[in-house]
Measured scan of single mutants.
Amino acid sequence: MQIFVKTLTGKTITLEVEPSDTIENVKAKIQDKEGIPPDQQRSIFAGKQLEDGRTLSDYNIQKESTLHLVLR
């Protein structure tokens, strides 16, 4: 499925993911596309910070959902 990741600069990245993917996985995909190390990424969805060990389905993130990426 496709999800979108919006950065603070307003750029939107499209990722191909599975509901079973962990947040860690997703951060690795963002690193592949953007070169941002996962330890600098904070992902926010529906106002909640997403934890690395959880999966997209844990957070009820579905296709075409938009995550927000904040850098630390």
Rank of each mutant, 00 (worst) to 15 (best):
M1L: 06
M1H: 03
M1I: 11
M1A: 02
M1S: 02
Q2P: 06
Q2R: 14
Q2G: 04
Q2S: 10
I3R: 01
I3A: 00
I3P: 00
I3E: 01
I3V: 05
F4A: 03
F4E: 03
F4N: 04
F4C: 04
F4V: 05
F4P: 02
V5D: 03
V5F: 04
V5S: 00
K6I: 14
K6W: 05
K6L: 09
K6G: 03
T7C: 10
T7L: 15
T7A: 04
T7Y: 12
L8N: 13
L8I: 12
L8Q: 13
L8S: 14
L8C: 15
L8V: 12
L8K: 07
T9A: 11
T9S: 13
G10Q: 03
G10E: 03
G10L: 01
G10M: 01
G10W: 04
G10A: 00
G10H: 04
G10P: 00
K11S: 08
K11G: 06
K11C: 06
K11M: 09
K11A: 08
K11T: 09
K11F: 09
K11P: 04
K11L: 09
T12V: 14
T12S: 05
T12P: 03
T12L: 13
T12N: 03
T12E: 04
T12M: 12
T12W: 08
I13Q: 01
T14M: 12
T14L: 08
T14K: 10
T14E: 07
L15V: 07
L15Q: 00
E16P: 03
E16A: 08
E16G: 05
E16Y: 13
V17K: 00
V17N: 00
V17G: 00
V17L: 05
V17T: 01
E18L: 14
E18R: 14
E18T: 13
E18G: 06
P19Q: 07
P19N: 05
P19A: 09
P19G: 07
S20L: 09
S20P: 01
S20A: 07
D21S: 06
D21W: 12
D21V: 03
D21L: 05
D21M: 10
D21F: 07
T22L: 08
T22F: 05
T22I: 04
T22K: 08
T22Y: 05
T22S: 07
I23V: 09
I23F: 03
I23C: 02
I23M: 05
I23P: 01
I23E: 01
I23T: 03
E24V: 07
E24N: 07
E24D: 08
E24A: 15
E24K: 11
E24C: 07
E24Y: 14
N25Q: 14
N25K: 14
N25C: 09
N25R: 14
V26F: 04
V26W: 01
K27S: 05
K27M: 15
K27R: 09
K27I: 12
A28D: 06
A28K: 15
A28W: 11
A28F: 11
A28V: 10
K29Y: 07
K29H: 04
I30F: 05
I30Y: 03
I30G: 02
I30V: 09
I30E: 00
I30K: 02
I30S: 03
I30T: 02
I30L: 07
Q31A: 14
Q31D: 06
D32F: 11
D32Q: 14
K33L: 14
K33C: 06
K33M: 13
K33I: 14
K33G: 06
E34C: 15
E34N: 09
E34P: 03
E34L: 15
E34H: 11
G35I: 04
G35A: 05
G35R: 05
I36C: 07
I36V: 09
I36L: 08
I36N: 05
I36S: 06
I36D: 07
P37F: 08
P37C: 08
P37G: 08
P37H: 11
P37E: 08
P38M: 15
P38I: 15
P38Y: 13
P38S: 13
P38A: 14
D39H: 12
D39G: 12
D39W: 14
D39I: 10
D39L: 10
Q40F: 10
Q41R: 06
Q41K: 06
Q41H: 10
Q41F: 15
Q41Y: 15
R42S: 13
R42Q: 14
R42A: 14
R42L: 15
R42K: 13
R42E: 13
S43W: 15
S43V: 15
S43P: 15
S43I: 15
S43A: 15
I44E: 08
I44G: 04
I44T: 07
I44A: 03
I44L: 13
I44Q: 05
F45V: 07
F45L: 06
F45A: 05
F45E: 04
A46L: 12
A46H: 13
A46C: 12
A46R: 13
A46Q: 14
A46F: 15
A46W: 14
A46Y: 15
G47K: 04
G47S: 05
G47Q: 05
G47F: 05
K48P: 04
K48G: 08
K48Q: 14
K48F: 12
K48W: 08
Q49Y: 15
Q49M: 14
L50P: 01
L50C: 04
L50Y: 03
L50N: 01
L50R: 00
E51C: 10
E51R: 07
E51H: 07
E51K: 07
D52S: 07
D52P: 09
D52C: 06
D52H: 05
D52N: 09
G53F: 13
G53D: 12
G53M: 11
G53H: 14
G53I: 06
R54Y: 12
R54A: 08
T55G: 01
T55F: 04
T55N: 02
L56R: 00
L56W: 00
L56M: 04
L56E: 01
S57G: 09
S57E: 11
S57R: 12
D58W: 10
D58E: 10
D58T: 03
D58R: 00
Y59V: 01
Y59F: 04
Y59I: 03
Y59G: 02
Y59L: 05
N60I: 03
N60S: 07
N60G: 14
N60Y: 05
N60T: 03
N60Q: 09
N60A: 08
N60P: 02
N60E: 08
I61G: 02
I61F: 03
I61E: 02
I61D: 02
Q62I: 11
Q62M: 10
Q62L: 10
Q62R: 11
Q62W: 06
Q62P: 07
K63S: 14
K63H: 15
K63A: 15
K63N: 15
K63T: 12
K63E: 12
E64P: 00
E64S: 09
E64Y: 14
E64H: 14
E64Q: 10
E64W: 14
E64M: 11
E64N: 15
S65C: 03
S65E: 08
S65P: 03
T66K: 03
T66Q: 05
T66E: 07
T66S: 04
T66W: 06
L67D: 00
L67E: 01
L67S: 01
L67C: 01
H68G: 04
H68A: 04
H68W: 14
H68Y: 15
H68V: 13
L69E: 06
L69T: 02
L69R: 00
V70R: 08
V70F: 10
V70E: 10
V70W: 07
V70L: 11
V70N: 05
V70K: 07
V70S: 07
V70I: 11
L71R: 08
L71Q: 11
L71T: 10
L71K: 07
R72E: 12
R72V: 14
R72W: 13
R72I: 14
R72C: 11
R72S: 12
R72D: 11
